[in-house]
Structure formats: C-alpha cells, structure tokens
Design a protein around this nucleic acid. Structure first.
Lengths: 235, 235
DNA sequence: CGCGTCCGGATCATACATTGTTTGACGAAA
DNA sequence: TTTCGTCAAACAATGTATGATCCGGACGCG
C-alpha cells in the first residue's frame, strides 16, 4: 500500500490484479473494448479471432473470457461460445443499485472506526478535488475513487469491499465517456464536504444515508448521460 | 422455466450453468472440494496435479481456476499460482452480511409485484417445508431455496439476483455439514409464515425488515455451528 | 547475511482430436 | 410450386498433448 499520500486510485488491498505478467493483459484489453463499446453488444467473441487481434494464442484468451464471465462482462453458453454482455442502461442501473445497498453499510462502519488521520486524509483529498475542480476529469476520477477507498479499504468485510471496487471500476470506465454536468459537480463537492462533517461528528446513520444519496446521484447522473447520448445518436 | 410445480432448486433464470457439457465439470468438482473442506485452506492448487486427479488436461483446469477466482473461492497470484481461499467464519460472515443488505431490497420489490399466484406458490412451498419438517435436510434446503427464489426470480436487477444466488449456493454447501437447532427450526417456520402474511398485506417495509432478520439469523446460525465445530475439533 | 545457481511450476504457443452447432442444399410430401 | 424434414459439410467450442520460456523460491556457497 506504500505511501498514503499518493492519490493514485488502487484497489483496497490484496485484490486480484490481472493474472498476466504484462502491463496490459488480454483480459484487460478485452474488458476495456467491451466497456468502451468497441466490442458491440451481443457481438460474438471468437477465441481464435481475439487471439490474433491481440497477438497471443487462444489459451490466454479463453482464460480471459472465463474471468470476464465471472465478472459479468461476457455471457458464455456451453458449446456456443461467448458473447459481449451489453453495457447498457440496465447494466449500469443494476450495478449502482447494488452500490446504494452496500456503500452505506461500509460507510457506517467507517464512521465508527475513523481516526483523526483518516479524517485529515479525507480532507486532504477533498482539497485536491476542489483544486482540480473537474479541470482534469481523469484526475478527478482518481481522486474521487481515492476518497471513497480511504473509507472502505480497511473494512473487515473484504468481500463487500471487493464488490464495491469492481463495480466502481465499471462505472468509472463508463463514466469516462461523459462530462460532468454543473449540477452534478456542485452536488459532488457539497456531499463530500457534508460527509466529512458527519464523519467528524460521528454521525454514522447520517453519513450512511448521505452516501446512499451520493451513490444514487452518481448512478443517475451516468444513466442520464447514457440516455442523452443514445437519444442524440438516434435523433 | 418449465413447470412451476417442481420444487427443485434452480438458479433464477438464465444464470451461468457450468461451461462444460458433462454433468460434473472440473469447475464444480474443484469448487465442491473447496467448500466441503477436502481441499484445505490456503492449499496450493497446482494445475497439473488437479488435471491428473480429475482426469483432464491442464487447460480446463486453468479455466476453472479463473472462474473460481472470479467467484472468490481461489486466490491467484501472478506467476505464483492459485491457492484455496479459506471457507472460514470470516468468509461466511462476509457473504451473509451482503445478503442482509441485498435481500431486503429484493423482497421489497417483490411485495409490490406479487400476484395471487405468487402468494399461493409461496404457501404451497411453505406447506411442503412444514410437512418435511427438517426430516430430510437436503429436501428442506431445496424447498427453502425455492421459497426465496420465487420472490427473487423475476426481479429486474439480474445482477443482484445473481449475486444472491451465488451466495446462497455457498451458504447451502457450508450449511450441509451441520444440523438445524430446534430454535432455528422454529424461527425459520415462524418467519416464513410471517413473511407470507406481510406480503399478503402489501407491507413492503415490514417484509424487508423481516427478511433482513431472517438472513441474519440464518447466517448467525451457520456461524455458530462452525464455531462449535471448530471448538470441538480443537478441544 | 548476501549472492548466485537451480528447479518447480506458471504462462504461453502450437498443433491436433473430438464433439456440438449452424447452415444450406437436397429431396420427399402437400 | 411450395413447404418441410433430413442430412452433410463447415465452423468453432472444447479438450488433449507437448514444448518453450520465464519467474520466484529454495538451497548452498562465500
């Protein structure tokens, strides 16, 4: 975990990391292709083709597909191969709704466990977020993820934390395609500030409720963007 | 889904099913070995060994391991192979705690969508459960799973339903090792009955709260059994 | 204790066998 | 002529086998 001063978003401890040695595993390449929409919904994923496209053999590709299946990005039907699961509005909604259920619980625990250092760290990141002020969207995304990771990374329920992280990655990837509305920007800053206050006050229920709204707002925001994008494309 | 009169527990629609054609895929064999404790905690999983033991080659084994990784049963470190994740009390606690967060939401939705047929179906299963009265534990497990599946199988959030199903499978496998205490038996029957009443009354919040308690009780029950078992083994 | 060597095994490439699915041609029946 | 069932060939999923390469840990030496 190294220096806690680093703002780089990283999984909350001992969590997976691709199976491959290379910087960009086949797994990651395919996954990003799916999330970014380069591989279209329901498109067939033929192992041999993917192997050739990424300059590997079929063996790693097949493993990557199994992994992606486990994560829900790919649907495999026995003897009929793999298809891209559509990253559509339903998919995003499903994911953020689960977040709405889980994150408040993680937050509630954090409020009871937070040290002064934790709070200082949150405030430090929040200041960086405000300094960046969405100028660099990627940096905002990193910082925002770090903000939440600070709260969840030590939670005893590793399963829940891991689930949160996976979902977070998906939403982050999808959201990268869009810009933040002014309203959303304001809400994010306000809610973060408010959250810090609630943590300071030790108000676990309040913090949990707020995080629920925060996640819900974030999910809705992405959903709206997707809807607008699709409407624009159709119109 | 074929005949709704069948009580056999089955996943809530279109959910995975092993990748293999055979009845028992390597994936399932390894998974069951882990859950049943035949493969010990943190034991190294050497692809070549597993392949030989199950009479296959390394390729299916590696794919199975990736899949198991995605489901949290196996931890894979790059270039250092796979290890069995311990199915210990922490693991079980993590899983049922997530259930406590998710199932109430699924239930709340069900209460708003339940038809008379659904309720009749719940009551029918409940009668079978009471007739069996834990005499055949396996049958109870099947029936109980069906009871909950009736409520969740049509939920729009497939992701959440799938998550529930996976967790359910694990808890079922772990629980198979133990017997129900009398107190737990009574609680299960009472809570199911009460749940049906709440559904009939359209009391979504009440049903959600009750399910929360139900899942919590179920989880604690398994945890207690594990604790007792370990204490007995140690003493 | 630090360092180099060696070995096990992970990872990947390749080739091939087997089996299930799809598709479209062909022919019989309406 | 149209419709429908049958069947074979193409395609690809799945599994097997084998070898190359590379990383990490263990062992032994200085």
């Amino acid at each position: 975990m190294g220096e806690p001063t680093d703002f780089k978003a990283a999984p909350p401890t001992g969590i997976d990391a691709g199976a491959s040695s290379e910087g960009a595993s086949v797994y990651e390449l395919i996954r990003d292709d799916i999330i970014a929409g380069r591989l279209k919904a329901n498109e067939r994923l033929i192992a041999a083709d993917l192997a050739q496209r990424h300059g590997t053999s079929t063996n790693p590709v097949r493993e990557a597909l199994q992994l992606l299946r486990g994560e829900g990005f790919v649907v495999i039907t026995p003897n009929r191969g793999a298809r891209v699961r559509p990253i559509d509005q339903d998919f995003v909604r499903d994911i953020y709704e689960i977040g709405v259920l889980i994150e408040p619980a993680l937050t509630r625990w954090f409020v009871g466990m937070a040290t002064l250092e934790d709070i200082a760290e949150l405030e430090r990141i929040q200041i960086l977020i405000e300094e960046n002020d969405f100028a660099d969207p990627l940096r905002h995304s990193e910082l925002d993820t770090t903000f939440h990771t600070i709260m969840y990374q030590r939670h005893y329920n590793r399963h829940a934390a891991e689930l949160w992280w996976k979902h977070r990655e998906v939403l982050r990837a999808v959201g990268r395609r869009f810009n933040f509305t002014l309203a959303r920007r304001a809400a994010i800053l306000r809610e973060h500030r408010e959250l810090i206050d609630l943590v300071k006050a030790g108000n676990a229920d309040g913090a949990a409720a707020l995080i629920g709204l925060h996640v819900e707002g974030s999910g809705r925001h992405i959903l709206e963007q997707m809807r607008a994008f699709n409407a624009a494309r159709a119109g």
